[in-house]
């Protein structure tokens, strides 16, 4: 991610848009929300809560060059599930409420209004052992780092056997270490 991978990024974006169109057909009302990342969970838990969760997601695994949609992609299935699953809906709504309560206690404003990342991290720290935080963190870990679409952005190759592995594709290549 610290390198110029513009081509891969564009490719990923095209793939994302293609996938979103398919998702929109399947996911009904939520589908259109996909293209508006901040409102991804609006139907289930409301605009404010969904925007709060997106901010929280970016604070848990902050990659400034990754677009919101990648974080929203992780949350969308959660929101869809929450529409049918009252326990999950409560976990998300109560979790956001707890986050705001903690932010209010420490900084006198809602989580989304706390401008400094370090301050928001302080708020999150207080909640990191809760099932709510663990659920969001676990889903994000898989959704960001186990996302095939994002692997090129992290410089990870993913499955290689169908390309014949790296035997003839540069496994020995290293042009910076001495003696290489």
């Amino acid at each position: 991610m610290n390198k110029n991978k513009a081509t891969d990024t564009n490719l990923s974006r095209r793939r994302f848009l293609a996938r979103s169109t398919v998702a929109a057909v399947g996911a009904g009302a939520l589908g259109s929300a996909l293209l508006s990342p901040a409102a991804w969970a609006a139907k289930a838990i409301g605009d404010q809560a969904s925007a709060t969760l997106l901010r929280m997601a970016r604070d848990i695994y902050p990659h400034d060059t990754l677009e919101d949609k990648y974080y929203a992609q992780v949350m969308t299935p959660l929101a869809e599930q929450a529409e049918k699953d009252d326990d999950l809906k409560a976990l998300l709504k109560d979790g956001v409420a707890a986050l705001d309560a903690q932010a209010n206690r420490l900084f006198g404003k809602a989580y989304l209004e706390v401008t400094a990342e370090a301050d928001r991290v302080t708020v999150l720290k207080a909640l990191e052992d809760t099932p709510f935080f663990q659920k969001i963190r676990g889903d994000l870990m898989m959704g960001i780092y186990n996302n095939e679409e994002l692997w090129p952005r992290f410089g990870y190759g993913g499955s290689s056997w169908e390309k014949g592995g790296y035997r003839y594709r540069g496994y020995e290549k290293n042009d910076w270490i001495k003696g290489a």
Binding site: D59, H63, E117, L124, R137, M141, F154
Partner: peptide, 21 residues
Amino acid sequence: SAFLKPGGWGRELANSLANYD
């Protein structure tokens, strides 16, 4: 992402994972 700092999160971990390559 799972083993570098089990249960971990935040900018320091994210920066290290951004350096995976």
